[in-house]
């Protein structure tokens, strides 16, 4: 990628152009920075307000937001990965709203004046070699259900059963109920016991002749676990976290 394709920036942009640059950057999973005179309001586990002043705001493609002043290495306000962002122009003010549902948190940054705005398509070779976070495994399966098998459709996460909450509950191509259990390390027979318990609990929950499939997703299983899976008619999909 050439520099002109990967970086877009504007100095002293009209407010509507700033909005357009930020919106395009957010939509394309770019890293977005905005510098200008703004106020910051946070509402969530606590509440805080920063009055008008020059700040540098960075939105990362993973949902992180950092608000920096000219001092210190820590941001004065921030949102963790996983937040969703919206940008709009309200009464000649560029408004960046970052929201998180659990726990409910909102960060509102309102620029009266934008001095600089930029978007960067970041390709970090290091990133490709890192393993994902715990939650990534579930997100990957939800984004690409065919990783489980063609025709698999996730219907819900954290579906409650008498034996506890199921990681992913869905249907196969033939409409059969499927319980998916996600593990991030090599597992043994006890993981088979866990899965069997959820399958039984769901069969009881649904109706007497319900035929529920159980699929264990893990990097690998022990030989004993593989045997027990087969004996119970449960299935295994190998997936690295």
């Amino acid at each position: 990628m050439t520099p002109t394709e990967s970086v877009r920036s504007r100095t002293n942009p009209p407010i509507e152009l700033a909005r357009s640059v930020v919106e395009t950057g957010l939509a394309s999973d770019a890293l977005v920075t905005i510098f200008g005179d703004c106020t910051v309001d946070y509402e969530g586990r606590a509440e805080s307000t920063l009055g008008p002043g020059d700040r540098h705001v960075m939105c990362k493609p993973d949902g992180t937001v950092l608000v920096h002043t000219d001092e210190g290495h820590q941001p004065v306000n921030w949102q963790p990965p996983g937040c969703t962002h919206e940008v709009s122009v309200e009464e000649s003010t560029l408004t960046l709203r970052s929201e998180r549902s659990t726990p409910a948190e909102e960060l509102l940054v309102q620029f009266r004046d934008v001095d600089h705005v930029a978007t960067f398509d970041v390709t970090d070779p290091e990133e490709l070699s890192l393993s994902g976070t715990e939650e990534d495994l579930r997100e990957r399966v939800l984004d690409e259900p065919e990783l489980i098998e063609p025709g698999f459709t996730p219907l819900s996460t954290e579906r409650e059963t008498p034996a506890g909450a199921v990681d992913i509950y869905g249907e196969d191509a033939n409409g059969r109920a499927v319980v998916v259990e996600l593990k991030r390390r090599r597992v043994g027979p006890d993981a088979v016991g866990q899965l069997a318990r959820y399958v039984e609990a769901l069969e009881r929950d649904l109706h007497d002749d319900a035929d529920v499939r159980g699929i264990l997703v893990a990097p690998s299983v022990t030989d004993r676990a593989r045997t027990l899976l087969a004996e119970r008619g449960l299935e295994f999909v190998s997936l690295e976290p």
């Binding site: 034996a163 027979p189 006890d190 016991g193 069997a196 318990r197 039984e200 009881r204 027990l228 004996e231």
Partner: peptide, 14 residues
């Protein structure tokens, strides 16, 4: 540490 053995024995886990 779970001592349950039903899954080794083909029994109900509930």
């Amino acid at each position: 540490l779970w001592f349950g053995l039903a899954h080794y024995l083909g029994e109900s886990l509930l």
